[in-house]
């Protein structure tokens, strides 16, 4: 029984996979409430499927890139849950999940980009072949610097239509696909480490300014 979740975009998405079958899932979109939505989402899918927590044998978590605060909620939850249940955690690049979704939905048949909102007028993006295999990325860039007429998956495409006129496929990742990507080993399995792609904003203090 695999418990999967992702909090690297405005979506808080949770799914429970029994072998090949998704037995419960939930997705709520609220960019500001990841910390409030994730834990109830996890208990909701466990309860809905009548699965006691001890039956969960692995955790899959989206490791971003994504806005830091939400991203950390998913990662610390995955790591801590795995610690208490003594089970492994698999990390997957969130953009890979969106790529797999787009391929599965038939939204793309040629090479494409995935772009999500990185705030500060930038996008997180990666390039994929038509089967959803990552060729380049993930990176963080200004939309104009990676503009393309080709198909672009994810909320980043919808936010910047000038740079990405051809928005296709899903806007946010779905944990049901995250779970399947892990069991089918369709994406690179990573350690549950966040893909921040940016350094923290912090300036060392300059010379003291006199007060008088």
């Amino acid at each position: 029984m695999l418990l999967a979740f992702d909090t690297a975009t405005p979506a808080v998405t949770v799914a429970l996979l029994d072998g090949e079958r998704v037995v419960a899932s939930q997705t709520k979109v609220d960019a500001r409430r990841h910390g409030e939505l994730l834990a109830p989402g996890i208990t909701a899918v466990l309860d809905e499927a009548w699965v006691p927590r001890q039956d969960v044998t692995a955790v899959a978590v989206g490791v971003g890139p994504g806005p830091f605060t939400g991203l950390r909620v998913g990662l610390v939850t995955a790591r801590t849950l795995a610690l208490t249940l003594q089970i492994p955690v698999y990390g997957v690049c969130t953009l890979d999940v969106l790529a797999a979704q787009a391929v599965d939905e038939g939204a793309v048949t040629t090479p494409f980009l995935v772009a999500t909102d990185a705030r500060r007028k930038e996008v997180y993006w990666a390039a994929y072949d038509e089967q959803g295999r990552r060729l380049d990325g993930p990176h963080v860039s200004r939309p104009a610097d990676v503009a393309t007429d080709g198909p672009v998956v994810g909320a980043g495409a919808r936010l910047y239509p000038d740079a990405f006129p051809q928005a296709v496929g899903p806007e946010h990742p779905d944990a049901r696909v995250l779970a399947r990507v892990v069991t089918d080993e369709r994406a690179e399995l990573l350690d549950p480490e966040p893909l921040y792609l940016r350094r923290p904003d912090a300036a060392e203090p300059g010379a003291r300014k006199p007060v008088s």
Binding site: G35, A39, T43, R53, V73, V76, T77, T80
Partner: peptide, 12 residues
């Protein structure tokens, strides 16, 4: 970070 970890402990 602490609140999310505490909830995960509580669930687990």
């Amino acid at each position: 970070v602490g609140v999310a970890a505490a909830k995960a402990l509580a669930i687990g």
